[in-house]
Nucleic acid binder design. Structure first.
Lengths: 233, 233
DNA sequence: ATAAATATTTAAGCTCACCTAAACAACTGC
DNA sequence: GCAGTTGTTTAGGTGAGCTTAAATATTTAT
Protein backbone atom coordinates (compact mmCIF):
# COMPACT_ATOMS: atom_id res chain seq x y z
CA UNK A 1 0.00 0.00 0.00
CA UNK A 2 1.32 3.42 -0.93
CA UNK A 3 1.01 6.89 0.45
CA UNK A 4 -2.48 8.37 0.17
CA UNK A 5 -1.38 11.68 -1.28
CA UNK A 6 1.88 13.36 -2.24
CA UNK A 7 4.07 14.75 0.52
CA UNK A 8 2.91 18.23 -0.32
CA UNK A 9 -0.74 17.22 -0.29
CA UNK A 10 -0.34 15.55 3.10
CA UNK A 11 1.23 18.72 4.45
CA UNK A 12 -1.70 20.79 3.22
CA UNK A 13 -4.21 18.43 4.82
CA UNK A 14 -2.30 18.55 8.09
CA UNK A 15 -2.24 22.35 8.04
CA UNK A 16 -5.95 22.58 7.20
CA UNK A 17 -6.75 20.11 9.97
CA UNK A 18 -4.98 22.21 12.57
CA UNK A 19 -6.40 25.51 11.34
CA UNK A 20 -9.88 24.07 11.24
CA UNK A 21 -9.56 23.15 14.91
CA UNK A 22 -8.46 26.66 15.79
CA UNK A 23 -10.73 28.74 13.57
CA UNK A 24 -13.43 26.41 12.29
CA UNK A 25 -12.24 26.96 8.73
CA UNK A 26 -8.83 27.24 7.08
CA UNK A 27 -8.28 30.49 5.21
CA UNK A 28 -6.02 30.66 2.22
CA UNK A 29 -3.72 33.06 4.00
CA UNK A 30 -3.41 31.03 7.19
CA UNK A 31 -2.52 27.93 5.18
CA UNK A 32 0.06 29.88 3.20
CA UNK A 33 1.66 31.09 6.40
CA UNK A 34 1.79 27.66 8.01
CA UNK A 35 3.38 26.11 4.96
CA UNK A 36 5.67 29.02 4.12
CA UNK A 37 4.19 29.26 0.64
CA UNK A 38 2.47 32.08 -1.23
CA UNK A 39 -1.34 32.42 -1.23
CA UNK A 40 -1.24 31.84 -4.98
CA UNK A 41 0.31 28.43 -4.50
CA UNK A 42 -2.34 27.61 -1.91
CA UNK A 43 -5.21 28.42 -4.26
CA UNK A 44 -3.83 26.00 -6.82
CA UNK A 45 -3.42 23.18 -4.33
CA UNK A 46 -6.85 23.74 -2.81
CA UNK A 47 -8.35 23.16 -6.24
CA UNK A 48 -6.46 19.91 -6.52
CA UNK A 49 -7.54 18.74 -3.07
CA UNK A 50 -11.12 19.60 -3.93
CA UNK A 51 -10.88 17.47 -7.08
CA UNK A 52 -9.65 14.60 -4.90
CA UNK A 53 -12.58 15.16 -2.57
CA UNK A 54 -10.29 15.60 0.40
CA UNK A 55 -11.57 19.10 1.20
CA UNK A 56 -14.67 21.20 0.70
CA UNK A 57 -13.59 24.50 -0.65
CA UNK A 58 -15.44 27.63 -1.65
CA UNK A 59 -13.47 30.38 -3.34
CA UNK A 60 -12.80 33.36 -1.04
CA UNK A 61 -14.24 31.40 1.88
CA UNK A 62 -11.74 28.78 2.93
CA UNK A 63 -11.32 25.03 3.21
CA UNK A 64 -12.67 22.28 5.43
CA UNK A 65 -11.63 18.64 5.39
CA UNK A 66 -13.96 15.95 4.13
CA UNK A 67 -14.12 12.66 6.02
CA UNK A 68 -11.46 11.21 3.72
CA UNK A 69 -9.29 14.29 4.09
CA UNK A 70 -9.54 14.18 7.85
CA UNK A 71 -8.56 10.52 7.77
CA UNK A 72 -5.37 11.28 5.85
CA UNK A 73 -4.57 14.27 8.05
CA UNK A 74 -4.95 12.42 11.33
CA UNK A 75 -2.99 9.45 10.05
CA UNK A 76 -0.16 11.81 9.11
CA UNK A 77 -0.28 13.44 12.53
CA UNK A 78 -0.30 9.99 14.13
CA UNK A 79 2.81 9.03 12.22
CA UNK A 80 4.53 12.31 13.06
CA UNK A 81 3.94 11.92 16.77
CA UNK A 82 4.87 8.25 16.88
CA UNK A 83 8.17 9.01 15.16
CA UNK A 84 8.80 11.78 17.67
CA UNK A 85 8.40 9.25 20.46
CA UNK A 86 10.80 6.95 18.64
CA UNK A 87 13.38 9.67 18.17
CA UNK A 88 13.30 10.74 21.81
CA UNK A 89 12.90 7.40 23.54
CA UNK A 90 14.90 5.13 21.27
CA UNK A 91 17.43 7.38 19.56
CA UNK A 92 17.86 9.65 22.59
CA UNK A 93 17.28 12.88 20.74
CA UNK A 94 16.39 15.90 22.83
CA UNK A 95 12.76 16.92 22.54
CA UNK A 96 13.59 20.17 20.78
CA UNK A 97 15.46 18.36 17.99
CA UNK A 98 12.90 15.88 16.74
CA UNK A 99 10.44 17.98 14.80
CA UNK A 100 12.50 18.38 11.62
CA UNK A 101 13.05 14.65 11.25
CA UNK A 102 9.49 13.73 12.15
CA UNK A 103 8.31 16.10 9.40
CA UNK A 104 10.04 13.83 6.91
CA UNK A 105 9.31 10.49 8.53
CA UNK A 106 5.59 11.22 8.82
CA UNK A 107 5.17 10.68 5.09
CA UNK A 108 6.51 7.13 5.13
CA UNK A 109 4.64 3.89 5.70
CA UNK A 110 1.10 2.61 5.45
CA UNK A 111 -1.37 1.73 8.20
CA UNK A 112 0.26 -1.63 8.85
CA UNK A 113 3.68 0.01 9.17
CA UNK A 114 2.34 2.64 11.53
CA UNK A 115 0.57 0.11 13.71
CA UNK A 116 3.77 -1.91 14.02
CA UNK A 117 5.67 1.21 15.02
CA UNK A 118 2.92 2.02 17.52
CA UNK A 119 3.14 -1.47 19.04
CA UNK A 120 6.93 -1.34 19.16
CA UNK A 121 6.76 1.93 21.09
CA UNK A 122 4.22 0.47 23.50
CA UNK A 123 1.21 2.36 22.14
CA UNK A 124 2.11 5.72 23.69
CA UNK A 125 -0.80 8.10 24.22
CA UNK A 126 1.16 11.33 23.83
CA UNK A 127 4.27 12.48 22.01
CA UNK A 128 7.31 14.03 23.77
CA UNK A 129 5.59 17.45 23.79
CA UNK A 130 2.47 16.13 25.46
CA UNK A 131 0.35 16.14 22.30
CA UNK A 132 -2.06 13.21 22.07
CA UNK A 133 -1.40 10.51 19.46
CA UNK A 134 -4.49 9.61 17.39
CA UNK A 135 -5.40 5.93 17.24
CA UNK A 136 -5.54 4.06 13.95
CA UNK A 137 -9.10 5.29 13.35
CA UNK A 138 -7.98 8.90 13.64
CA UNK A 139 -9.73 9.34 16.97
CA UNK A 140 -8.06 10.66 20.04
CA UNK A 141 -9.15 11.57 23.46
CA UNK A 142 -7.45 14.80 24.46
CA UNK A 143 -7.15 15.16 28.21
CA UNK A 144 -10.10 17.42 29.02
CA UNK A 145 -8.60 18.57 32.29
CA UNK A 146 -5.57 20.14 30.62
CA UNK A 147 -5.45 23.94 30.47
CA UNK A 148 -2.93 26.73 29.97
CA UNK A 149 -0.67 27.43 32.96
CA UNK A 150 -1.57 31.12 32.91
CA UNK A 151 -5.01 30.16 34.26
CA UNK A 152 -3.58 28.59 37.43
CA UNK A 153 -4.57 29.88 40.88
CA UNK A 154 -2.50 30.34 44.01
CA UNK A 155 -1.78 27.22 46.10
CA UNK A 156 -2.87 24.98 43.22
CA UNK A 157 -0.85 21.81 42.77
CA UNK A 158 -0.53 20.66 39.18
CA UNK A 159 1.23 18.40 36.70
CA UNK A 160 2.92 19.65 33.54
CA UNK A 161 1.15 17.95 30.65
CA UNK A 162 2.31 19.60 27.44
CA UNK A 163 3.41 22.64 25.51
CA UNK A 164 1.41 24.63 23.00
CA UNK A 165 4.57 25.76 21.22
CA UNK A 166 7.24 23.32 20.14
CA UNK A 167 9.82 25.84 18.99
CA UNK A 168 13.36 24.76 19.82
CA UNK A 169 14.25 27.82 21.85
CA UNK A 170 11.15 27.50 24.00
CA UNK A 171 11.83 23.82 24.67
CA UNK A 172 15.45 24.51 25.52
CA UNK A 173 14.28 27.24 27.90
CA UNK A 174 12.05 24.71 29.66
CA UNK A 175 15.03 22.38 29.96
CA UNK A 176 16.98 25.20 31.58
CA UNK A 177 14.11 25.73 34.04
CA UNK A 178 14.04 21.97 34.67
CA UNK A 179 10.41 21.83 33.62
CA UNK A 180 9.56 18.39 32.23
CA UNK A 181 6.32 16.70 31.23
CA UNK A 182 4.80 14.81 34.13
CA UNK A 183 6.62 16.85 36.78
CA UNK A 184 4.56 18.19 39.68
CA UNK A 185 4.59 21.79 40.90
CA UNK A 186 2.68 23.99 43.28
CA UNK A 187 1.81 27.62 42.70
CA UNK A 188 3.47 29.77 45.36
CA UNK A 189 2.82 33.27 44.08
CA UNK A 190 1.68 35.32 41.12
CA UNK A 191 2.97 38.82 40.29
CA UNK A 192 0.43 40.86 38.35
CA UNK A 193 3.08 43.47 37.61
CA UNK A 194 4.70 41.34 34.88
CA UNK A 195 2.43 38.29 34.88
CA UNK A 196 5.18 36.07 36.26
CA UNK A 197 4.82 33.22 38.73
CA UNK A 198 6.69 31.52 41.50
CA UNK A 199 6.21 27.77 41.59
CA UNK A 200 7.94 25.12 43.63
CA UNK A 201 8.65 21.63 42.40
CA UNK A 202 8.19 18.30 44.21
CA UNK A 203 11.58 18.81 45.89
CA UNK A 204 10.42 22.16 47.21
CA UNK A 205 12.81 24.02 44.92
CA UNK A 206 11.29 27.33 43.79
CA UNK A 207 11.38 28.54 40.20
CA UNK A 208 10.40 31.81 38.59
CA UNK A 209 8.25 31.47 35.47
CA UNK A 210 7.55 34.34 33.10
CA UNK A 211 4.16 35.19 31.63
CA UNK A 212 5.41 34.06 28.22
CA UNK A 213 6.40 30.64 29.48
CA UNK A 214 3.19 30.10 31.48
CA UNK A 215 1.16 31.04 28.42
CA UNK A 216 2.62 28.17 26.41
CA UNK A 217 2.63 25.49 29.08
CA UNK A 218 -0.26 23.07 29.44
CA UNK A 219 -0.99 21.72 32.89
CA UNK A 220 -3.45 19.53 34.73
CA UNK A 221 -4.63 20.43 38.23
CA UNK A 222 -4.09 17.87 40.97
CA UNK A 223 -7.25 17.74 43.10
CA UNK A 224 -6.62 18.45 46.79
CA UNK A 225 -6.67 14.96 48.22
CA UNK A 226 -9.85 14.01 49.98
CA UNK A 227 -9.28 10.27 50.43
CA UNK A 228 -8.95 9.66 46.67
CA UNK A 229 -5.34 9.13 45.60
CA UNK A 230 -5.90 7.73 42.09
CA UNK A 231 -5.55 10.78 39.93
CA UNK A 232 -3.16 9.43 37.33
CA UNK A 233 -4.68 7.76 34.28
CA UNK B 1 22.11 19.41 8.67
CA UNK B 2 20.15 18.53 5.56
CA UNK B 3 20.24 15.85 2.92
CA UNK B 4 23.32 16.00 0.68
CA UNK B 5 21.43 15.71 -2.60
CA UNK B 6 17.84 15.35 -3.70
CA UNK B 7 16.21 11.96 -3.34
CA UNK B 8 16.61 11.36 -7.05
CA UNK B 9 20.28 12.35 -6.97
CA UNK B 10 20.94 10.00 -4.08
CA UNK B 11 19.31 7.18 -6.02
CA UNK B 12 21.52 7.86 -9.01
CA UNK B 13 24.65 7.84 -6.87
CA UNK B 14 23.59 4.58 -5.25
CA UNK B 15 22.98 2.98 -8.66
CA UNK B 16 26.30 4.22 -10.03
CA UNK B 17 28.08 2.93 -6.94
CA UNK B 18 26.71 -0.56 -7.39
CA UNK B 19 27.31 -0.66 -11.14
CA UNK B 20 30.83 0.60 -10.69
CA UNK B 21 31.53 -2.33 -8.38
CA UNK B 22 30.17 -4.78 -10.92
CA UNK B 23 31.54 -3.35 -14.14
CA UNK B 24 34.17 -0.79 -13.17
CA UNK B 25 32.10 1.96 -14.77
CA UNK B 26 28.38 2.78 -14.89
CA UNK B 27 26.96 2.99 -18.41
CA UNK B 28 24.05 5.21 -19.20
CA UNK B 29 21.94 2.22 -20.13
CA UNK B 30 22.68 0.20 -17.02
CA UNK B 31 21.78 3.17 -14.81
CA UNK B 32 18.55 3.70 -16.74
CA UNK B 33 17.61 0.08 -16.21
CA UNK B 34 18.36 0.08 -12.49
CA UNK B 35 16.31 3.23 -11.93
CA UNK B 36 13.51 2.37 -14.34
CA UNK B 37 14.10 5.59 -16.25
CA UNK B 38 14.93 6.32 -19.88
CA UNK B 39 18.53 6.79 -21.05
CA UNK B 40 17.58 10.35 -21.98
CA UNK B 41 16.68 11.12 -18.39
CA UNK B 42 19.96 9.61 -17.22
CA UNK B 43 22.05 11.81 -19.52
CA UNK B 44 20.43 14.88 -18.04
CA UNK B 45 21.03 13.82 -14.47
CA UNK B 46 24.62 12.79 -15.14
CA UNK B 47 25.31 16.31 -16.32
CA UNK B 48 23.89 17.66 -13.10
CA UNK B 49 25.90 15.26 -10.96
CA UNK B 50 29.04 16.22 -12.88
CA UNK B 51 28.36 19.89 -12.15
CA UNK B 52 28.11 19.00 -8.47
CA UNK B 53 31.41 17.14 -8.73
CA UNK B 54 29.84 13.95 -7.44
CA UNK B 55 30.76 11.94 -10.54
CA UNK B 56 33.35 11.99 -13.31
CA UNK B 57 31.53 11.60 -16.56
CA UNK B 58 32.63 11.44 -20.17
CA UNK B 59 29.94 11.46 -22.83
CA UNK B 60 29.43 8.05 -24.43
CA UNK B 61 31.79 6.49 -21.85
CA UNK B 62 29.98 6.26 -18.55
CA UNK B 63 30.16 7.57 -15.00
CA UNK B 64 32.38 6.99 -11.98
CA UNK B 65 31.89 8.41 -8.52
CA UNK B 66 34.22 11.07 -7.15
CA UNK B 67 35.29 10.81 -3.50
CA UNK B 68 32.40 13.06 -2.50
CA UNK B 69 29.95 11.06 -4.60
CA UNK B 70 31.12 7.80 -3.09
CA UNK B 71 30.69 9.28 0.36
CA UNK B 72 27.05 10.18 -0.33
CA UNK B 73 26.37 6.81 -1.96
CA UNK B 74 27.80 4.74 0.88
CA UNK B 75 26.04 6.83 3.47
CA UNK B 76 22.75 6.22 1.65
CA UNK B 77 23.44 2.49 1.50
CA UNK B 78 24.35 2.54 5.18
CA UNK B 79 21.05 4.19 6.03
CA UNK B 80 19.12 1.76 3.84
CA UNK B 81 20.62 -1.29 5.50
CA UNK B 82 20.30 0.05 9.02
CA UNK B 83 16.61 0.77 8.44
CA UNK B 84 16.18 -2.76 7.11
CA UNK B 85 17.60 -4.10 10.36
CA UNK B 86 15.21 -1.85 12.26
CA UNK B 87 12.22 -3.00 10.26
CA UNK B 88 12.98 -6.69 10.69
CA UNK B 89 14.28 -6.73 14.26
CA UNK B 90 12.16 -4.03 15.87
CA UNK B 91 9.00 -3.87 13.79
CA UNK B 92 8.93 -7.61 13.05
CA UNK B 93 8.58 -7.25 9.30
CA UNK B 94 9.50 -10.28 7.23
CA UNK B 95 12.76 -9.90 5.35
CA UNK B 96 11.06 -9.84 1.98
CA UNK B 97 8.87 -6.87 2.93
CA UNK B 98 11.41 -4.31 4.07
CA UNK B 99 12.99 -3.12 0.86
CA UNK B 100 10.21 -0.77 -0.25
CA UNK B 101 10.16 1.08 3.06
CA UNK B 102 13.93 1.21 3.38
CA UNK B 103 14.05 2.82 -0.08
CA UNK B 104 12.15 5.75 1.37
CA UNK B 105 13.73 5.86 4.82
CA UNK B 106 17.26 5.85 3.41
CA UNK B 107 16.87 9.47 2.32
CA UNK B 108 16.12 10.75 5.81
CA UNK B 109 18.51 11.91 8.48
CA UNK B 110 22.06 13.22 8.70
CA UNK B 111 25.21 11.53 9.99
CA UNK B 112 24.29 12.14 13.61
CA UNK B 113 20.85 10.64 13.08
CA UNK B 114 22.29 7.61 11.34
CA UNK B 115 24.88 7.03 14.03
CA UNK B 116 22.19 7.12 16.70
CA UNK B 117 20.13 4.61 14.75
CA UNK B 118 23.24 2.45 14.37
CA UNK B 119 23.92 2.56 18.11
CA UNK B 120 20.28 1.83 18.92
CA UNK B 121 20.42 -1.26 16.73
CA UNK B 122 23.64 -2.43 18.38
CA UNK B 123 25.93 -1.55 15.46
CA UNK B 124 24.93 -4.51 13.28
CA UNK B 125 27.50 -5.56 10.67
CA UNK B 126 25.04 -6.88 8.11
CA UNK B 127 21.44 -6.23 7.09
CA UNK B 128 18.74 -8.92 7.12
CA UNK B 129 19.86 -10.16 3.69
CA UNK B 130 23.46 -10.58 4.76
CA UNK B 131 24.75 -7.47 3.03
CA UNK B 132 27.44 -5.64 4.99
CA UNK B 133 26.59 -2.26 6.54
CA UNK B 134 29.21 0.43 5.82
CA UNK B 135 30.60 2.29 8.83
CA UNK B 136 30.23 6.05 9.19
CA UNK B 137 33.33 6.60 7.03
CA UNK B 138 31.79 4.63 4.19
CA UNK B 139 34.19 1.75 4.69
CA UNK B 140 33.09 -1.81 5.08
CA UNK B 141 34.81 -5.10 5.35
CA UNK B 142 32.95 -7.60 3.22
CA UNK B 143 33.50 -11.14 4.43
CA UNK B 144 36.20 -12.39 2.04
CA UNK B 145 35.32 -16.01 2.63
CA UNK B 146 31.79 -15.66 1.29
CA UNK B 147 31.05 -17.17 -2.13
CA UNK B 148 28.13 -18.32 -4.22
CA UNK B 149 26.54 -21.61 -3.15
CA UNK B 150 26.83 -23.02 -6.67
CA UNK B 151 30.60 -23.31 -6.09
CA UNK B 152 30.21 -25.66 -3.13
CA UNK B 153 31.76 -29.13 -3.16
CA UNK B 154 30.45 -32.44 -1.87
CA UNK B 155 30.71 -33.05 1.89
CA UNK B 156 31.43 -29.37 2.50
CA UNK B 157 29.85 -27.89 5.62
CA UNK B 158 28.88 -24.26 5.32
CA UNK B 159 26.95 -21.38 6.79
CA UNK B 160 24.39 -19.33 4.85
CA UNK B 161 25.68 -15.76 4.82
CA UNK B 162 23.56 -13.80 2.39
CA UNK B 163 21.58 -13.54 -0.81
CA UNK B 164 22.62 -11.87 -4.03
CA UNK B 165 18.99 -11.24 -4.99
CA UNK B 166 16.53 -9.64 -2.60
CA UNK B 167 13.39 -10.09 -4.69
CA UNK B 168 10.36 -10.89 -2.58
CA UNK B 169 9.53 -14.16 -4.30
CA UNK B 170 13.06 -15.46 -3.92
CA UNK B 171 13.12 -14.59 -0.21
CA UNK B 172 9.74 -16.20 0.36
CA UNK B 173 11.01 -19.30 -1.41
CA UNK B 174 13.95 -19.44 1.00
CA UNK B 175 11.52 -19.17 3.90
CA UNK B 176 9.60 -22.12 2.47
CA UNK B 177 12.86 -24.10 2.28
CA UNK B 178 13.65 -23.04 5.86
CA UNK B 179 16.89 -21.48 4.70
CA UNK B 180 17.89 -18.64 7.03
CA UNK B 181 21.03 -16.54 7.39
CA UNK B 182 23.46 -18.08 9.85
CA UNK B 183 22.03 -21.58 9.49
CA UNK B 184 24.48 -24.44 8.93
CA UNK B 185 24.20 -27.07 6.22
CA UNK B 186 26.25 -29.84 4.73
CA UNK B 187 26.41 -30.73 1.05
CA UNK B 188 25.11 -34.29 0.55
CA UNK B 189 24.91 -34.55 -3.20
CA UNK B 190 24.98 -32.63 -6.46
CA UNK B 191 23.03 -33.56 -9.59
CA UNK B 192 24.71 -32.33 -12.77
CA UNK B 193 21.60 -33.16 -14.78
CA UNK B 194 19.73 -30.07 -13.56
CA UNK B 195 22.37 -28.44 -11.34
CA UNK B 196 20.39 -29.14 -8.19
CA UNK B 197 21.71 -30.04 -4.75
CA UNK B 198 20.83 -32.05 -1.74
CA UNK B 199 21.88 -30.47 1.53
CA UNK B 200 21.10 -31.41 5.09
CA UNK B 201 20.67 -28.94 7.89
CA UNK B 202 22.04 -29.07 11.44
CA UNK B 203 19.09 -31.29 12.44
CA UNK B 204 20.01 -33.73 9.71
CA UNK B 205 16.89 -32.83 7.72
CA UNK B 206 17.60 -33.02 3.99
CA UNK B 207 16.48 -30.34 1.52
CA UNK B 208 16.56 -30.16 -2.24
CA UNK B 209 17.94 -26.92 -3.68
CA UNK B 210 17.64 -25.92 -7.32
CA UNK B 211 20.40 -24.46 -9.44
CA UNK B 212 18.56 -21.14 -9.47
CA UNK B 213 18.45 -20.96 -5.68
CA UNK B 214 22.07 -22.01 -5.18
CA UNK B 215 23.16 -19.40 -7.69
CA UNK B 216 21.72 -16.59 -5.59
CA UNK B 217 22.74 -17.83 -2.15
CA UNK B 218 25.97 -16.66 -0.53
CA UNK B 219 27.68 -19.06 1.84
CA UNK B 220 30.82 -19.38 3.93
CA UNK B 221 32.64 -22.70 4.20
CA UNK B 222 33.14 -24.14 7.66
CA UNK B 223 36.70 -25.49 7.86
CA UNK B 224 36.84 -29.15 8.84
CA UNK B 225 37.72 -28.86 12.49
CA UNK B 226 41.32 -29.55 13.34
CA UNK B 227 41.37 -28.37 16.97
CA UNK B 228 40.17 -24.84 16.09
CA UNK B 229 36.53 -24.30 17.01
CA UNK B 230 36.35 -20.50 16.76
CA UNK B 231 35.03 -19.93 13.28
CA UNK B 232 32.30 -17.45 14.07
CA UNK B 233 33.25 -13.77 13.97
C1' DA C 1 -22.43 54.18 0.72
C1' DT C 2 -18.27 54.42 -0.89
C1' DA C 3 -13.15 54.58 -0.60
C1' DA C 4 -9.30 52.29 1.18
C1' DA C 5 -7.20 48.30 2.87
C1' DT C 6 -6.89 43.43 2.79
C1' DA C 7 -7.54 38.85 0.95
C1' DT C 8 -7.91 35.88 -2.96
C1' DT C 9 -7.53 34.45 -7.59
C1' DT C 10 -5.67 34.52 -12.27
C1' DA C 11 -1.85 34.75 -15.45
C1' DA C 12 2.63 33.87 -16.82
C1' DG C 13 6.71 31.68 -15.91
C1' DC C 14 10.27 28.89 -13.24
C1' DT C 15 12.73 24.38 -11.68
C1' DC C 16 13.04 19.54 -11.21
C1' DA C 17 12.79 15.24 -12.97
C1' DC C 18 10.81 12.87 -16.13
C1' DC C 19 9.05 11.50 -21.11
C1' DT C 20 9.14 10.54 -26.58
C1' DA C 21 11.16 10.99 -30.87
C1' DA C 22 14.78 12.08 -33.69
C1' DA C 23 19.71 12.85 -34.47
C1' DC C 24 24.12 11.32 -33.75
C1' DA C 25 28.34 8.25 -32.18
C1' DA C 26 30.44 4.04 -31.55
C1' DC C 27 31.00 -0.43 -31.96
C1' DT C 28 29.98 -4.93 -34.83
C1' DG C 29 30.14 -8.22 -38.81
C1' DC C 30 31.41 -8.99 -43.17
C1' DG D 1 36.20 0.10 -44.66
C1' DC D 2 31.43 0.38 -44.74
C1' DA D 3 26.62 -0.83 -43.41
C1' DG D 4 23.86 -1.92 -39.75
C1' DT D 5 23.01 -2.39 -35.00
C1' DT D 6 23.35 -0.59 -30.54
C1' DG D 7 24.03 3.00 -27.28
C1' DT D 8 23.91 7.94 -26.28
C1' DT D 9 22.63 12.59 -26.73
C1' DT D 10 19.78 16.50 -28.15
C1' DA D 11 15.35 18.69 -28.79
C1' DG D 12 10.94 19.54 -27.48
C1' DG D 13 7.36 18.69 -24.19
C1' DT D 14 4.76 17.19 -19.63
C1' DG D 15 3.24 17.64 -14.75
C1' DA D 16 3.83 18.92 -9.97
C1' DG D 17 4.52 22.51 -7.15
C1' DC D 18 6.23 26.63 -6.65
C1' DT D 19 7.12 31.96 -7.74
C1' DT D 20 5.90 37.15 -8.86
C1' DA D 21 2.86 40.50 -10.50
C1' DA D 22 -1.52 41.99 -11.87
C1' DA D 23 -6.50 41.66 -11.53
C1' DT D 24 -10.48 40.95 -8.84
C1' DA D 25 -13.30 40.11 -4.52
C1' DT D 26 -14.26 41.03 0.09
C1' DT D 27 -14.08 43.45 4.29
C1' DT D 28 -13.41 47.58 7.06
C1' DA D 29 -13.55 52.42 8.10
C1' DT D 30 -15.41 56.73 7.61
Amino acid sequence: MKRSGSISQENYLKAIFKLQHEHGIASNQAIAEKLAATPAAVTGMLHKLTELDWIDYTAYQGAKLTAKGRQIATSTIRKHRLWEVFLVEKLQFKWDAVHQWAEELEHIGDANFTNRLDAFLGCPSTDPHGDPIPDSNGDWKGNERVFSADALTRKQKFTVRGVSNSASDFLRHLDALKIQLGKHFEVMDFFPFDGSWEWKDDQGIPIRVSREVAGQLLVEAIPTNRGNENQES
